[in-house]
Design a protein around this nucleic acid. Structure first.
Lengths: 419, 419
DNA sequence: GCAATTAATTTAGGTCTTGAAAATATGGAC
DNA sequence: GTCCATATTTTCAAGACCTAAATTAATTGC
């Protein structure tokens, strides 16, 4: 409000520089870094570890010996053995049986769970239908119980084999405290949902916003692994977003998802179900499209619910019906506009599109990437790559296993931040 | 493009988890963390250091003794001495004379430099007029020379007293390499500008996009010190933005600023000087306002250049001239829309508005914050705080001193990342 | 076979850091 | 004033951790 440089916003604060201790500076133990490097590579030799982590060969020997003794990694016959000139490298890999984790995506009308081994490999998965109504949290805990039972039975394991659970769900989630401030699945707010699940099954539980889980899935298993900054946009009922910035999942200050769907693409624009005007969702959500479709297709908007209207609209568009096609095209243009804003603001190296609605991908994909690039100021710079990914529930659930794995690893080397 | 989970985007990559070594995991030496803590606090006791950094009291003694021996910190008579019960705490502070740095903001029509001591305190500053034309880089190096000479003379110092320079400038800047890919100040592209300045004055130079410098200024000296996530929006000729996320300055993938000014606020909207349509800048920049002002004020748009037209428009609005007022109000609404998108996408804890154009703050400030909140989906969450800050060039230059200080500190404890 | 080459291990030594006890410097009770 | 409670700081031995350099190991090319 002024030009005064000497005063700071909080009077008692003297000195200068960032005042918050960045948790970044507390280093992970070297042993954990070795372990994570091996997991990241899948298979490596000690000499690689030493080079990649900048530690002495001697340390590599000592540390890997520790990990081998703890039965976390093991030596393995290397197929590439005998390629080079000197002494052959001894490949190391994670012991997959060292532990298992379960990742769960709680959805609007179905839940999916995935069982993963310690190396991050998918072992087994299961999807069960669920209610579409808001309900008390103990009921959802029950549903998780059914999911776990089914999954473990299918895999021939027991709960004792599992060392952690990750859960992704829609809503406002405090990942650090395991509290669900709000979710369409729950009939009350500010639930200590993580603690409830922990107590019920006696396992550590990590809770996370579902868009974040999908983002973690890309960071751990997808194209995001080799990018330091990327965005994931999900098209489902709503439009969600997750971000990885500086190699870290960015969650925002208030734990509510990053709401791309409610960014404004038009001043005083179309009315959105959130009550605002001009939201992106007001132009590209199912509701918006079905509203328009009702006119074009001469359908009552609510004959069989929006899903069937969408299907009909899609069918007509695919068959070449011009008005139907134009509805999709217009939605595509608005989507491109919204995405271009993301690219302009974050300058990510990669933008991943995912979610149920990308079923209609051939409607969007053709021009979408070009449309976005055209809307972005590109001063000789490399354009942001746009990828369209699958939309299966399993992706979400795998993201949850990633989160569970990360937590489990931290616990193993006790670096975890106590909640 | 598919639902296949087993294949990764880059075939040779096995394993799972983030593949990029986050530079975060290489820890700063404890000695440096102590030093930075002292600088951050301004004045602290050893016992505080031990508690805050989670190290043993013994280590605090040893480390501070080292720093005292190196003449980087010193004991000081504490005004609060003798408050408590037990042995009084001995206050420690940075030795301000241990070093000096200079921060420079290179502007469109003037340059500003600031001299700061090792404790981050401003000692002296100087602004000189500059050309408004693009010119070769050696000429700008000359201008920097004049700036340094003037500043040092004013302060009674010599170049030998200075241990680092930070420079902020408009354009596409590679901060790691010190290369200016493009800038309106330079008549050619991809200049190794940092190296040129380094060679000329024999001092380490840090180059940075100017919006980032301003953001650093808030992170080091302003309200951002105690926030882990915040955004800084600058209103000058263009609309710029800087972000601190997870306690770190976020620079984007391509080193070009985060272009809030060219996010789209309207499909097929007003034409922007960048060639696109619907950019925020097309609604709130000087050019846009003067174009409208020309109509209202019956002025030829180019009588004395846009600056004088702006001044006239502002005067009329302040005097209550309704059409002039409406021009500002409309611009304010679009600004609010653009800001609401930032808040919606990043969920920052704080949004700081700064820059020359905030001179007209009383035009904007009244409703701006409320307008933004009204446009943001707020599901019971604490609203993002919006602050309007001064706009003096000095803020930029101080940000540059912060960057120079950070680099100098890294060098001192040799943690620096070799370019 | 022998040199060259690369990988892994051993070992001695150095640098940090901690933990516990001791020393220090005060305020307050009597 | 003396003594005790309290809080800060220092001392110092013990140990964790890592590195450097030398050594051992396992190959290929000639």
């Amino acid at each position: 409000m002024d030009g005064d440089l000497s005063s700071t916003a909080t009077p008692p604060l003297e000195g200068c520089g960032p005042a918050l201790a960045d948790q970044l500076s507390l280093p992970k133990p070297l042993r954990q870094r070795v372990f994570e490097y091996v997991r990241g590579q899948g298979r490596t030799a000690r000499s690689d570890i030493s080079r990649a982590l900048g530690i002495s060969p001697g340390s590599a020997t000592t540390l890997t010996a520790d990990l081998i003794r703890a039965n976390l990694i093991r030596e393995v016959a290397d197929p590439e053995r005998g390629q080079g000139r000197g002494r052959p490298r001894v490949a190391l890999e994670i012991v997959p049986e060292a532990g298992h984790v379960i990742g769960i995506k709680l959805g609007d009308d179905r839940h999916t769970a995935a069982l993963s081994d310690f190396a991050g490999r998918l072992i087994c998965d299961l999807t069960l239908p669920a209610s579409t109504k808001a309900r008390p949290s103990y009921q959802i805990v029950d549903e998780i119980g059914a999911l776990l039972t089914g999954l473990l039975e299918k895999a021939g394991k027991t709960l004792r084999d599992v060392s952690g659970i990750g859960i992704g769900m829609v809503g406002i989630v405090d990942h650090a405290q395991g509290i669900v401030h709000w979710s369409p699945l729950l009939d009350s707010t500010d639930q200590a949902f993580g603690a409830a699940v922990e107590e019920r099954f006696g396992l550590p539980v990590a809770l996370e916003n579902d868009a974040n889980m999908l983002t973690l899935s890309e960071l751990w298993f997808g194209a995001g692994r080799v990018k330091s900054d990327f965005a994931v946009v999900t098209l489902e009922k709503g439009v969600g977003m997750g971000l990885v910035l500086n190699n870290q999942l960015y969650r925002g200050s208030f734990g509510m998802g990053l709401e791309l769907g409610h960014t404004k693409v038009q001043m005083e624009g179309a009315l959105c179900r959130c009550g605002q005007r001009g939201c992106l969702e007001a132009y590209i959500s199912d509701d918006a499209l079905t509203r328009e479709a009702a006119t074009v297709l001469n359908l009552a908007p609510d004959t069989d619910g929006p899903a069937s209207t969408m299907a009909a609209l899609y069918q007509q568009a695919a068959a070449g019906h011009a008005p139907a096609l134009r509805i999709f095209q217009r939605a595509g243009r608005f989507l491109a506009l919204g995405l271009s804003n993301v690219v302009q603001l974050f300058d990510p190296a990669l933008l991943i599109l995912s979610g149920e609605r990308m079923t209609y991908e051939f409607m969007y994909a053709d021009h979408l990437s070009a449309d976005v690039q055209a809307l972005v100021l590109s001063q000789n710079k490399m354009p942001c790559k746009i990828e369209i990914r699958g939309h299966r529930d399993l992706h979400w659930a795998r993201g949850a296993t990633a989160r569970a794995l990360a937590d489990m690893t931290d616990r193993l080397f006790n670096t975890e931040t106590p909640a």
